[in-house]
Design a protein around this nucleic acid. Sequence first.
DNA 1: ATAAACCGCTACGAAATTCGTAGCAAGAGG
DNA 2: CCTCTTGCTACGAATTTCGTAGCGGTTTAT
Lengths: 88, 88
Amino acid sequence: MVLFDLLSRRWAMGILWNLADEPRTFRDLQERCGSASPSVLNTRLKELRQVELVEKTEGGYTLTPTGRELFDRLEPLGDWAMDWVPTL
Amino acid sequence: MVLFDLLSRRWAMGILWNLADEPRTFRDLQERCGSASPSVLNTRLKELRQVELVEKTEGGYTLTPTGRELFDRLEPLGDWAMDWVPTL
DNA sequence: ATAAACCGCTACGAAATTCGTAGCAAGAGG
DNA sequence: CCTCTTGCTACGAATTTCGTAGCGGTTTAT
């Protein structure tokens, strides 16, 4: 599964998640992703841009239309997680 | 995000995906996950069992009810990926 | 009963990924 | 100028994953 392989790289899902609301700068993303190291973050952003899920605009990094499609499928998962985590 | 952290470990999603239809043996899972090394596979299974998403029965490894709930949210993502991948 | 095959899993060194920190070049503002 | 912020690179250390070998146990075939 190509997608799973891509998403299971560290911070990949977190990036998509944090770009959902509004464009974010590099450093903004960094903070929101538990202070991910800039090298990994940059690598991940390159990968996500290469497959056109994320793009860079003047406002910062943001989701492409395709990226948003993916996010829409990712959101239920995140929502479900909110209810699930406390049960641990 | 605790769930994202868990799922973004190698093979985690693949395991859930492959347990969806029927219980699988250790070695069966191994093949289906692109010949993941037994050490990682075992580590991942331990983790997934610890949070009770997966359990071990006489028939092999299988999803718990909670695991299935998660899978139900994961499936749309996989389905979407099928349509998406060709566009690369 | 013995061999052959399959099972779950451990061991362990090599390879790849990620982390953490430091810091540079470029642009904005004072 | 000087300072601040931003995007990003560098690089060694720490962690994760890989690949392969193999052990002990159970079933199947001979």
